[in-house]
Design a protein around this nucleic acid. Structure first.
Lengths: 223, 223
DNA sequence: ACCTGAACACCGTTCAAGT
DNA sequence: ACCTGAACACCGTTCAAGT
């Protein structure tokens, strides 16, 4: 490893001033959220993982909120969307595809949802994703106002669901246990559905998504 | 005010041990959230408003989370729902009514949404509200599994929307300003809908709700 | 019994001081 | 120029000590 030290290339760690590349900060931050949850993303903890100090982070970000903005946009950048492929779909297929892609990405970073509600995503990747969605809806012939509302509904549905994902994963299990132990005389309906609750989250999401798209088709001003 | 001091009734403030009634704690906590936001609900700040100490709070609640549970259920208790009135509605009218009532309550306590995603509501009022919703869906003849999914979809939509409500109120304004300043060549679709974005939140909510209920009607296994 | 002050181990943020 | 340690004003939680 450290056999023949090179002239001036290495500077292993925090020697001169390795400048802590922004990309490494964001990758580490996202990894931190993935592994330990959104609440673990503190300036101190992040600085520790980078083997740096908190003040160094403030050179890149004015405050924690803008750090969060960048981390969120990194996640949006992972949403698997091919503009060309989208163009070949009908508008309802495209809506389902985009929402599913967003859901899958949030599934890969389950613990990031609390950060998403801290702020409206305005990073470059988020802006691009929104642009593509709106382009599909406008391309289908929907008036701007209808397209805007349709997009908002879908976005809120995905986010609302993503929040449900946040729970440590056994959310469904815990809820089911709780609902099955409910007093039968006072909560007959709750008890009746308690048994059919451990539906896989992915299926549950698809169910609601179909509902919304079906409603969109029925309400759409175009055939 | 303090004219003729009564024998042993008053004990104006933190004298003997006024025991800090739980109801006053919760009312003060909710007021604190309403006035200064969810992030302001710290044990210290709450204790200060009660003219007490943090340790006193830990006599009533094991930790901050259970305090939050109680505050949330206090909000659920405000949801205006008459079981008798619900029974006279068709299932789709009932769904709209319940979702609207929940939305209006969250509108009265806009800044509480961040607390709602910290945990699944399990307080008595939340349990009762869920029971009534599920009873309506089962009463309409929906199979338990379908009813459970329908309820989950509606609950998630309302919560997802409530999160959007959390932003200081000018969220729409800020978003509109941002979207209208976007580069026209790269974001034509975003720009096209930017003008039709400042839709009143209540209308926006109703739009999506109708979509979902319409989708439910289309997907329902009963006529 | 119930409440209190002070402590412990954390936060986000800032700033003078180092290289 | 960039990084660092230490500080400031906060957290949630606990505990010995007061009445």
């Amino acid at each position: 490893m450290t056999s023949s030290s090179p002239p001036a290339a290495a500077t292993r760690r925090s020697r001169g001033r390795p400048a802590v590349p922004l990309d490494r900060i964001l990758a580490t931050a996202l990894q931190l959220v993935d592994e330990e949850g959104a609440e673990a993303l503190s300036m101190r903890t992040l600085a520790q993982r980078l083997e740096s100090g908190t003040a160094t982070l403030y050179r890149h970000f004015g405050n924690r909120a803008t750090l969060v903005t960048h981390v969120i946009d990194r996640v949006f950048g992972e949403v698997d969307l091919d503009a060309a492929a989208l163009a070949d779909l009908t508008w309802d297929q495209a809506c389902r595809t985009v929402a599913q892609a967003m859901f899958e990405t949030l599934g890969r970073h389950r613990r990031i949802a609390p950060l998403l509600i801290e702020q409206t995503p305005t990073g470059p990747n988020a802006m691009l994703l929104r642009e593509r969605c709106l382009a599909v809806l406008l391309g289908a012939g929907f008036p701007p106002e209808f397209a805007a509302r349709a997009y908002a509904t879908l976005a809120r549905y995905v986010l609302g669901f993503a929040i449900q994902l946040t729970g440590s994963g056994d959310t469904g299990e815990r809820a089911r246990a709780l609902f099955q132990d409910v007093p039968p005389d006072r909560f007959p309906a709750t008890l009746a559905v308690a048994g059919s609750l451990p539906v896989p989250l992915a299926e549950e999401f698809a169910f609601g998504l179909d509902l919304i798209v079906e409603g969109l088709r029925a309400a759409a001003p175009v055939g």
